[in-house]
Nucleic acid binder design. Structure first.
Lengths: 343, 343
DNA sequence: TATATTTGCTTAAACGTTTAAGCAAATATA
DNA sequence: TATATTTGCTTAAACGTTTAAGCAAATATA
C-alpha cells in the first residue's frame, strides 16, 4: 500500500528539463514539437508509468469523454446487445460509457438523468422507461446543450435523433405471415399506446387487417405492460371470449412467453389451434417448446448507429444539424409457434 | 442551442458579494458558516440553477466518486441483478458506477481495466472472465492502491475481498437431492477447473459422491465452457457412453438448457430417465418445459455486500484491513427436471 | 546579405473546485 | 475589565492538465 504519488507531466518535465507545456504537446503529437523531444517524452512517460489524469484534462477541455446510456433494464438481450455495440463504437473514439438502468420506473429515470448530468457526461443515449410520459427531464438535457440520442423507446415530440426499427411495417409483416398460415381471427396484445413504438405496432396491426379485409374486433386488441405476468393475464382474458382468436400477436417476447404458458396449461395446440408471434427475438424464444416466432430488431445496428449519431454531434456537424430519424427494417424469424404447415 | 455558460460558485459569490470559499463551504454545510449565509447561498444556487462541476471537485479532492464494475456479460439475470444492487447501495453514498463488460474475453477485460484506471475510478468491483488466468492486470489495480473487490468469479491468490456463495456446499446439496430422488449415476458437466468457483463445485461433487459411497466415474465428470452450445455437445458425449448416467448436474443454466434440448431431441424422459440440475437460477429455468431445478445464488445479497465491502475501504478502515471473504449459503430450487416423485 | 517565415520551445493563465492558514469581530471566561 | 476562545468569513494556493501568446534560433526567401 505504499501508494507513492501518481506521476504527472510535471515529473516528466523535470526529468527532461523542459516545460510541462512541451510535455503535454509531445504526448499529443503536436506538430510544433521536434521528433526527438516527442520520443524522449514518451520514453520517460513509459518509464515512470505515466497515466494521464483524465479529470484534469476533462476539466481543462470542458469535456469528460463520458457518455451516459440509459436503458429500462440491462437484463434483456436486446438492450445488452445495443449497449455492447455503443460501447464498441465509442471506445474507439476515446469515450467511455456509463450505463444506468431505469428499471422501467419514471422516478428512477429522473434520478439517473440528474446523476449523469452531475457526472458531466458529454452526451446521453437513452431508451425510455415504460412509465415515462412527462418529458420535462429529457427537455432538461436538451436545454443544457448536451447531445441526446434516443433509440427504440423514444418520443417524436422531443425532436432529437432517434434510431429504431419500422414498427408499423413489422406489424404488417406479422399479420401477413399469420394470414398466409391460414389465420383469420388475429388478436394483438400490444404495449402502451402512449409509447410511440407500441402505438406504431398497434396502427400497423389495424391497417394490415384492413388491407386484407379482415374485420377489426375490439375484443382482440388489448393493451398490456408486456411483462410475462401480464402476458399470462391477457391471454387468459382472450381465452374467455365467445369467439376465440386463432392467432395472437404479442408486442413483446416476455409477454408472448406468458401467453404460451397459458395456452399450454389449457392444452391448446400451438400453432394449430392458436398460432403465436412475439416481438424482439430474445434468445429464449428459440429455447422454449414450441419455439416462438418473433421479430429481430437488429440491436447491433441500433447500437452502432446511436453511437455514430452522437459522434456526429461532437464532430460539430452542428451547422445545419438535421434530425436523424433512422428507421431500420425488421426481420421476421419464423419458428414453430406459428408454422402451421410444418407442424 | 444558446448554451450560455454553466453557473459556477463564482457566479453565486458575485451575487452575494462573498468569496467562492464561503460559497463552497456553505454548500457543504460547513459549521463555520452562518445559517443566514448558507440559506442565501442555497437560494441563489437554486435560482441560478447551479450544478456542481463534478470534475473540478474530483480533481481537487483527488477522488472521482466513480466505481468501475466489470462483469463477463450484462445479459444474464445474475449479473444484471448484482449490478443493480451495487448501484443502489453506492448511489446512496454519492458514488456512480461505470459498468463494463469483458464478454468473457481476457483481452477485453484488460482493456476495460485500463479504461477504468484512466477514468480515475475510486474502486473496482469485478467478476472475472472465463478466459482469465493471468492475474497481472488485476495486480496492477492493487499496485495503484485502488480498492478491488471480487465477486462470484474471483481468485484466492489475489488476496482481495471476495463475495460469493458456497459452491462446494452447493454441489453437496445437489448431489444429496439427486440421491434422494433415487439417482445412482450422477454426471457433472462442470466449468473450467482453473476458475475457483467451478473448481469448488467439482470438488464438492466428488466429495459428495464419496460421502454417499457412490463410485466416481471419470467418464461422468466433464469440463465445459458452459455455453448453451457446449452444454449440448457435452450432453451428447454423455449419451454415447455404454453406461449412461441417470442424472446430470450442470454447473451453469445455459449449458443445462443445451443438455435439456439434447435429451428431448433424443426422446429421453426428464427426469425419469435422466434427471437434470442447473446452476444460477436464471429466469428461463422456470420458463422451459420441463422447468429446470437450479441453484439460487442470491445475486441481490452479493451485489449489496460487494458495494459495502468497497465502502468499508473508503471509510478508511485501513488500520487493520482484514480480508473479507464473504460466503453466502446457496438455495436449491427444485423444479420438474429433477422431481421424480411428482412426475 | 537582409528580411520573412518556420520551428521548437517557454510563460502564464485557465478550467471550477476545495482547503489550509489567517484575520477581525463577536462572544465567553477569569 | 483584560484576555482567551469562537465565529464567520477571506486570501491564496492547489489539483493536473491544456492552450493562447510570445520569443529566440534556425531556416527559407528575395
Amino acid at each position: 500500500m505504499t501508494n507513492k504519488k501518481r506521476t504527472t507531466i510535471k515529473d516528466i518535465a523535470n526529468v527532461l528539463k523542459i516545460s510541462t507545456a512541451a510535455v503535454s504537446k509531445a504526448l499529443h503529437d503536436d506538430s510544433r514539437i521536434s521528433t526527438e523531444t516527442k520520443e524522449a517524452v514518451k520514453k520517460v512517460a513509459k518509464e515512470l508509468n505515466y497515466q494521464p489524469n483524465h479529470l484534469a484534462s476533462a476539466l481543462r477541455k470542458g469535456k469528460s469523454n463520458l457518455v451516459g446510456v440509459i436503458v429500462p433494464k440491462t437484463n434483456s438481450n436486446f438492450f445488452s446487445s445495443v449497449i455492447q455495440n455503443i460501447e464498441e463504437v465509442l471506445n474507439k473514439e476515446g469515450y467511455n460509457i456509463i450505463i444506468t438502468q431505469s428499471n422501467e420506473s419514471y422516478t428512477k429515470e429522473c434520478n439517473t438523468i440528474d446523476t449523469l448530468l452531475f457526472t458531466q457526461v458529454d452526451g446521453i443515449i437513452a431508451s425510455m422507461a415504460n412509465e415515462t410520459i412527462d418529458l420535462s427531464y429529457y427537455e432538461k438535457i436538451k436545454s443544457k446543450g448536451i447531445p441526446l440520442i434516443l433509440f427504440d423507446r423514444g418520443e417524436n415530440d422531443l425532436n432529437v435523433d432517434y434510431i429504431g426499427i419500422d414498427d408499423y411495417h413489422s406489424s404488417h409483416i406479422i399479420v401477413e405471415h399469420l394470414i398466409e398460415q391460414g389465420c383469420q381471427r388475429i388478436a394483438h396484445i400490444g404495449g402502451y399506446k402512449h409509447t410511440r413504438i407500441f402505438n406504431n405496432r398497434i396502427r400497423g396491426y389495424i391497417d394490415a387487417l384492413k388491407k386484407y379485409n379482415l374485420p377489426l374486433d375490439k375484443e382482440l386488441l388489448i393493451e398490456s405492460n408486456l411483462t410475462l405476468q401480464d402476458g399470462r393475464k391477457k391471454m387468459m382474458q382472450l381465452l374467455t371470449l365467445q369467439k376465440r382468436p386463432d392467432a395472437v400477436y404479442v408486442a413483446g417476447d416476455y409477454a408472448a412467453l406468458g401467453a404460451l404458458q397459458v395456452l399450454q396449461e389449457n392444452h391448446i395446440n400451438i400453432p394449430n389451434d392458436i398460432a403465436l408471434v412475439g416481438f424482439g427475438n430474445e434468445p429464449f424464444t428459440a429455447m422454449v417448446t414450441p419455439t416462438i416466432t418473433s421479430i429481430e430488431q437488429h440491436s447491433n445496428e441500433i447500437g452502432k448507429q446511436a453511437a455514430n449519431a452522437f459522434l456526429a454531434y461532437t464532430r460539430g456537424d452542428f451547422v445545419k444539424q438535421k434530425l436523424n430519424k433512422t428507421i431500420l427494417d425488421a426481420a421476421l424469424i419464423v419458428r414453430d409457434s406459428s408454422n402451421i404447415k410444418d407442424s
